[in-house]
């Protein structure tokens, strides 16, 4: 459960940092009137949707961290063999990086109020993400043709499982992106459109980060890390 615990430690650190600024040592029974209205202890001054996305990403992060934990634990068994990564995965990774870049450019365009550029960037981002998904389907087929059936190598099962869950999250993201793109068909860059673009970009960067870890994991680059952790535990 190392991966999950590391992830939790990060969450605890962030939550602890925030809580430490909430005057948890104050004595509320002595403070009446507006003495309690110290700056920084009010409701968070951000759009609810951004805070909501942050919390949601914590949940998604926990989900993937647990998959990674399961992967590490299953790795210790003798029937384990590292997966030969299908080549196309590298191409897909590139597509996902481009997709993230496009959305970051969309954010910049939205902040500057350049509607035309915003539309193009959103579409480019979506297109790259679709290419990524199509590429993933090809990757699964390539593996299936190699004859790695579910029963033959647990690493293959994990590949299907983890990239599948990641893909589902990308599809969900695409739906949100589509809604933002529809909004951008209007005449101007509204506050809502800007927030929507920012939310999509944040989500995309996060999914890219998750993807990079997935690839590192499946390609076996983290095996040594896993060994170190194991030695720490035993």
């Amino acid at each position: 459960m190392i991966a999950a615990l590391i992830f939790l430690a990060i969450v605890v650190a962030i939550a602890g940092w925030w809580l430490s600024r909430q005057r948890l040592f104050s004595k509320p029974w002595l403070e009446t009137g507006n003495a309690g209205l110290a700056p920084g202890t009010e409701a968070i001054n951000q759009p609810a949707s951004k805070v909501g996305l942050g919390v949601f990403l914590a949940v998604v992060g926990a989900l993937f961290a647990l998959f990674f934990s399961a992967y590490f634990m299953r790795m210790e068994f003798p029937d384990w063999r590292t997966l030969a990564m299908p080549r196309i995965v590298w191409f897909n990774t590139g597509a996902l990086v481009l997709s993230s870049i496009a959305l970051q450019m969309a954010v910049v365009a939205a902040r500057r109020g350049r509607l035309q550029a915003l539309r193009q960037d959103l579409l480019a981002g979506a297109a790259a993400a679709v290419i990524f998904l199509v590429g993933q389907v090809l990757a699964w087929r390539a593996l299936a043709e190699l004859g790695y059936f579910a029963t033959s190598n647990p690493a293959y099962s994990f590949f299907v499982l983890i990239t599948g869950v990641h893909g589902l999250h990308m599809i969900g993201g695409l739906i949100a992106l589509a809604r933002t793109a529809v909004q951008s068909a209007g005449g101007e860059v509204t506050e809502r459109l800007r927030t929507g673009t920012e939310l999509c970009a944040t989500y995309w960067h996060f999914m890219l980060l998750v993807w990079v870890i997935i690839v590192a994991l499946l390609a076996g680059w983290l095996n040594e890390f896993a060994d170190i952790c194991r030695q720490l535990l035993v």
Partner: peptide, 24 residues
């Protein structure tokens, strides 16, 4: 539950009325 949970958390973080600090 995740859908509901997001609401409960963000409501506490965001929608507290004026003067309702965490320690109140």
């Amino acid at each position: 539950f995740t859908m509901g949970g997001l609401n409960y958390v963000v409501t506490v973080l965001q929608a507290r009325t004026r003067g309702m600090t965490l320690m109140r």
